[in-house]
Simulated scan of single mutants.
Amino acid sequence: MRLTLLACLAFLGATPLAAQTLSGETFDCVMDPVDVIALGAPVTGILEDVLVRRGERVTKGQPIARLESSVEEATVKLLRTRADSDEAILAQTARRDLIAVQRERIATLVDRNVASAEQLQEAEAELVAANALLAQAELEREIANQELARALQQLDQRTIKSPIDGIILSRDLSGGEYVAANGSIVSIVQLDPLLIEAFLPVELYPAISNGQRAMIAPAAPFTDNYEAQVITFDQVFDAASGTFGVELELPNPGSLLPAGHRCILSFPGDG
């Protein structure tokens, strides 16, 4: 609805431009956030706590909310105990070393014709079996470490983090509520950069190009002008209004300028 209004304003307010020039012309525009994220959770569950409030600034990676995670914490504790245990490996190593010593003794006795070849073969078979059991113990230790790593990732998923630097636009759920698969916990708005949207008469289409500089004058109470850059423009015209859409990017460090505000767009020259 807002874009339709802008299109009509651009169509009614622009003067005929036979020379297809941008210089000296002004156009109504709107300052929008570059992104609005309805932040959910990768897993379902009961919210333990929401750590932010509406209007609060957040940074990328900052914890936003936590799901109840007592089961996951208990699983991590169990798997860490198993992964840290090396008793099985130590026991199999000691058994393998003992069998290896016995095999060497039997080999010496065979050389002296005191023991039989069959005894040596049995000792060698026991040594092979001992090495296999040691390898199995080491494999089980590696599997336990991998299971622990997976459990830690599952536990980490219970902490919901912000994917961007932004501002909390709304807080949709509170502690104790259930987070569904498509549920939103908070909405985060990214205000740096801002996205400037405007509609220009189709006569100006040849004069617009990506990367083109423009000046943005936000409506009151702001009094300064800010430089923006064209990032895209419509390849399909709106026949009803005789306009086409243009989007510009306006750097907004510190998110000092608000989104959802009207502005005036002008171009300092033809390039």
Rank of each mutant, 00 (worst) to 15 (best):
Leu3Val: 09
Thr4Glu: 07
Phe11His: 10
Thr21Ala: 12
Leu22Asn: 02
Thr26His: 15
Phe27Lys: 03
Phe27Leu: 01
Met31Phe: 04
Met31Leu: 08
Leu39Asp: 00
Ala41Asn: 06
Gly45Phe: 01
Ile46Tyr: 13
Leu47Glu: 02
Val50Leu: 08
Thr59Trp: 15
Gln62Arg: 06
Lys77Gly: 14
Arg80Ala: 06
Arg80Gln: 12
Ala83Gly: 05
Ala88Ser: 06
Leu90Pro: 01
Arg95Tyr: 15
Arg95Leu: 09
Arg105Asn: 08
Ala107Lys: 10
Asp111Cys: 06
Asn113Thr: 15
Leu120Gly: 00
Ala123Phe: 06
Asn131Thr: 11
Ala132Gln: 04
Ala132Thr: 07
Gln136Ser: 07
Asn145Arg: 11
Leu148Asp: 00
Gln154Lys: 15
Gln154Glu: 13
Arg158Glu: 06
Ile160Trp: 03
Pro163Trp: 01
Leu169His: 09
Ser184His: 10
Val186Glu: 03
Leu191Ile: 00
Pro193Ser: 01
Leu195Thr: 08
Glu197Trp: 14
Leu204Cys: 06
Asn210Arg: 12
Met215Thr: 10
Ala219Met: 08
Phe222Glu: 04
Asp224Arg: 13
Asp234Ile: 07
Phe237Ser: 11
Thr243Arg: 12
Glu249Pro: 03
Asn252Ile: 00
Ser255Ala: 09
Leu256Pro: 03
Leu257Met: 00
His261Gln: 09
Ile264Phe: 05
Leu265Thr: 02
